[in-house]
């Protein structure tokens, strides 16, 4: 599948602000499931900073905008050819030891309910792959997709208690329960192309990856009850949404910030 991406993120402020600094993780991962045809990230009026690939294989680029800043607009435009690898992150070069992904964070803190859900889901399952599938299915079951029910700081435990949430909540809950049964897991951010089959989804998407010894990292998307396939574009990963965020930024000043996002994914007919 060839997918085009047009993604514009705008922060505007009601008062002139000081300098803005951004750390962007908005470049498609290099692995067998995707090949970049073209890709461009730019920040309007910004200065490009250092760029590097981190130990987890993500490309990160720094940007800054000199003051006064009244708007930060980040534009991503590109075209990627994708392939279905059944969720397996094959051919992805990275260095980080899987065990570094067993650590809990505030957003993925394991409470009694998450622990109970994890234990119940994997009961009787011995193989890690099977356990991972069961955990993902259990999260799909336990948290219904409902936009607006949660916010960006909702934790996995809170989303489970509420029983509803969006892809971020599903992904947080999945990595939390996986770590709970000693399976290294991480939060992945990327894009999802919407086909017209009526499945709920968000174009700017998030899912989880679980480490299965002998196979490697495998993606699971509890929000859509599947493993990532050719409809997905993977950008980067981290212990939770904050770490994996495509955009991390700070704008100095006390003005009120408003966020606008437009994401368009289209399939190029061949």
């Amino acid at each position: 599948m060839i997918l085009t991406v047009n993604h514009v993120t705008t922060y505007d402020y009601d008062a002139p602000m000081g300098a803005a600094v951004q750390s962007l993780r908005m470049f498609p991962s290099r692995f067998e499931g995707q090949r970049v045809i073209e890709w461009d990230v730019s920040v309007e009026g910004g200065l490009r900073g250092g760029s590097f690939r981190d130990g987890a294989g993500d490309r990160v680029e720094g940007w800054s905008i000199r003051p006064p800043v009244d708007e930060v607009a980040i534009t991503v435009k590109g075209q990627v050819e994708t392939f279905d690898t059944s969720g397996v992150l094959r051919g992805h070069r990275e260095l980080v030891h899987p065990m570094a992904y067993l650590r809990e964070t505030v957003a993925t803190w394991i409470d009694d309910s998450l622990a109970a859900l994890a234990e119940e889901a994997v009961a009787g399952a011995t193989e890690d792959l099977n356990r991972a599938h069961r955990l993902s299915a259990a999260i799909s079951e336990a948290i219904a997709y409902k936009p607006g029910a949660t916010h960006s700081h909702t934790t996995a435990a809170e989303a489970l208690a509420q029983g509803e949430g969006v892809c971020q909540d599903h992904a947080h809950a999945l990595v939390a329960v996986a770590r709970c049964v000693d399976l290294p897991a991480r939060y992945v951010s990327g894009y999802l192309f919407a086909t017209d089959d009526g499945t709920p989804h968000e174009a700017a998407h998030a899912w989880g990856e679980i480490w299965v010894a002998g196979i490697g990292w495998i993606g699971f998307d509890p929000a859509n009850k599947c493993c990532p396939d050719e409809r997905y574009i993977r950008l980067g990963s981290g212990l939770d949404a904050r770490e994996a965020a495509p955009i991390r930024g700070i704008t100095q000043g006390s003005g009120e910030e408003r966020l606008h996002v437009t994401v368009a994914l289209d399939q190029v007919q061949q």
Binding site: V21, Q22, S23, G49, G50, S51, F52, D54, V60, E61, G62, S64
Partner: peptide, 8 residues
């Protein structure tokens, strides 16, 4: 942004 500068 210091860590981005450092790592690059």
């Amino acid at each position: 942004g210091l860590m981005d500068v450092y790592r690059s």
